[in-house]
Amino acid sequence: MKVGVVTFPGSLDDRDAARAVRIVGGEAVALWHGDADLRGVDAVVLPGGFSYGDYLRCGAIARFAPVMTAVIERAQQGMPVLGICNGFQILCESHLLPGALIRNDHRKFLCRDQELVVESVATSWTSGYQSGQHIVVPLKNGEGGFVASEDTLDRIEGEGRVVVRYVGDNPNGSYRAIAGVANERGNVVGLMPHPEHAVEELTGPSTDGLGFFSSLLRAAVNA
């Protein structure tokens, strides 16, 4: 399976996302922000970082990159897309996912090992987890507060689209402790924590993040 990893100017975790794809047996394909060609990939990861410096609003410029035109179009047709951290922000700015990400309520960048509960396994990226499973993956951002209107929050909760939720003290003021959400179809997932940093015992707090990438590949095999 070919999984594209987009590099925007200012992307930081693109190599890490590609490594995670390779570890679960996928083929990582580098995609360039200025290139609308998705090079025949079956899925796309939008990695963490500070695309274009994020000097406007996080993800607000990246959303207009040529590559995003193609990603948005294919996502609407059902191609799996995972947005991690800045990637999540880009997906919200692209209106592929509801809500927005704002500055952490404590106003500081926060890097820590974060416990999460996987609430929805009905997505392309989490089908390999058990519903209610607790996982630990790194969280690292300055603007990770998930916000949305009460109506939207009620709707996505009702539709089972909260994919992961923070366990314990809320690290950034996210409404209802939401760490990640999916679109209606479940092919597009965005989350602030970094599963690609929890794929090796040696370098991560756990290997709990592998599930995001293996879910995708397993679904492809079973399809």
């Binding site: 975790d13 500081k108 690292k140 970094h194």
Partner: peptide, 8 residues
């Protein structure tokens, strides 16, 4: 406040 994970 520092990212220790990036680059993996």
């Amino acid at each position: 406040q520092y990212d220790r994970y990036v680059l993996g």
